[in-house]
Nucleic acid binder design. Sequence first.
DNA 1: TTGTTTAAATTAAACGTTTGTTTAATACCT
DNA 2: AGGTATTAAACAAACGTTTAATTTAAACAA
Lengths: 207, 207
Amino acid sequence: MTEYNDKQLEILQAAEKLFAEDGFDGASIRHIARDANVNIAMISYYFGSKEKLLEALIIQRTSGMKMQLENISREDLSPTEKVDRLIDLYISRINKNKCMYQIMHFELSTKKRILNMESFMDMKKENSAIFNKIIVDGQEKGFFRKDINNALITTTILGTLTHFHTNRFYFEKTLGLDTEEAYEAYIANELTLHIKQTIKALLAHEN
Amino acid sequence: MTEYNDKQLEILQAAEKLFAEDGFDGASIRHIARDANVNIAMISYYFGSKEKLLEALIIQRTSGMKMQLENISREDLSPTEKVDRLIDLYISRINKNKCMYQIMHFELSTKKRILNMESFMDMKKENSAIFNKIIVDGQEKGFFRKDINNALITTTILGTLTHFHTNRFYFEKTLGLDTEEAYEAYIANELTLHIKQTIKALLAHEN
DNA sequence: TTGTTTAAATTAAACGTTTGTTTAATACCT
DNA sequence: AGGTATTAAACAAACGTTTAATTTAAACAA
């Protein structure tokens, strides 16, 4: 893990906020520098370019996920409990890094961006492999049915979660989530429950 | 519905493609004009501004959904069959308007944009209401369980679908979807099946 | 504790592009 | 002739990046 000094960390933090709010193109170097209380030139000086700043940010924020997945995998829990824990992990992780995932979502949808795709995809593959191992284990032990598409389970979890966040404004209005607390609480309770219910219904045997 | 002449339609089409590829900020007026074979000034002349061009595009492309939903609602089908049809509709609609949904996803995640949010949300609410009516009908007739969060069902459908499209590059690599046809086929078969399976498992009684 | 040296940090200013939009002139068509 | 369509050119503003000069901080020698 690369070490960053205080100024660099401030730049990363300001960049995270502004990239998420305004998008990569919308957020200007000058704005980021102003928010981070540094000179514009410092960003090129430390990170080389705007693109490389984004790369550094993504690497910084996405590391550590693999270890957390492995911890769950190793714990002494039933497959069903493990799935619960997996969902909790995804939700808390996306909640904690809301901005980051907004940016990645943003960036992934533009075809042109280079964005060190290879290393990013490798990370995704590793995480998926651990997740898949847990599901297959549950299938072999007879807890989960086998006629399902394992590769798409995380897609449904992450998709539901991300779609909720992306349409935050809509849900705030229709569900009456006036405050930040109400919004967070809805995710922690209703949304979490819905995702667990959905995934477990899919995995459960039914003849 | 506003009537557009040939040139205006060409502009809208080029804008749709480029907004989706490069994002709103990333796509320049000059690029759009070049692709549409019109002078740069014509875009301001016809649509007023870049922002208003986006608004016109979204309104053009999102109209008609309500009617299709109502058609399904009115048909003489079992609640379970209706849900299947609803999912088919969402999938085909997003598939047909891939670019459009990419743009909207893009735009929804930036806080600043104005984007006629009110009328857009009204449309979403209307669509959700029709969807919800179908679910509630199925619940009252005893086909679906009642201890689920109806408001989040579309979130899971659309989220799964959108997340798959957003991470297209990842799935192409990991699932070996080399060609456009293979990608489309995977959506039409596996992904569609997965979503139907998931939603029906969630809705189904199990005691 | 001094003065000197050296590299890193920091700055203001300027660079060359590109941006969205407007203007003012011209072409087209009824 | 008269209104719409179309154009090339110009506009000011904002963009990411670089430069060259200055400050800061640490290392070292006397």
